[in-house]
Design a binder for these strands. Structure first.
Length: 141
DNA sequence: GCCAACGTTGGC
DNA sequence: GCCAACGTTGGC
């Protein structure tokens, strides 16, 4: 069981869009970066991830779950590109902004803080716990 | 809107 | 296989 972070631009795919898909979920397509793809290949059904909005919002707004392992990205015929399917699980009571992550010394090594350009990132269990706490989640994820 | 960081492309 | 040129991303 691993933790991840998925980055999106609200104008392209918002948290509302993801929520609207419900249990059915949606494929996380459009990734054209080998590092990001390689992380998606490592994902297993049941893994959890943060849903982060880049650009304008710059905050983690929700939690998603991987519901299908890596498969061909349907938006391209290029066999190099694969993606997983994810569904929304939970909206954070308090969004966790990038600034909050940067201000928390325990999150200094988060990929989000260190390499802001990577669109799919691994998150350590410790970072996961801290961000959940900052986000106001009581229950254990 | 700018620019730094990073990834990709293509000529050699 | 190197590296310069170029394109893109994303924080500020």
């Amino acid at each position: 069981m691993s933790y991840w972070l998925f980055k999106s631009e609200a104008s392209t795919w918002s948290w509302e869009d993801q929520l609207a898909k419900g249990e059915e979920g949606e494929e996380w397509d459009g990734v054209r970066n080998y590092q990001a793809r390689n992380f998606m290949r490592q994902m297993q059904v049941g893994d959890l991830g943060f849903f982060y909005l880049s650009q304008k919002d710059k905050m983690i707004v929700g939690i998603v779950e991987v519901i299908a392992e890596a498969h061909q990205d349907s938006t391209t015929d290029d066999p190099r590109w694969e993606c997983v399917d994810i569904k929304a699980v939970k909206t954070l009571p308090n969004p966790v902004t990038l600034q909050m992550c940067k201000d928390d010394p325990r999150l200094a090594d988060m990929v989000l803080v260190r390499n802001s350009r990577l669109s799919v990132q691994p998150v350590t269990p410790e970072e996961w716990r801290i961000v959940c706490e900052l986000g106001g989640l009581e229950e254990k994820f």
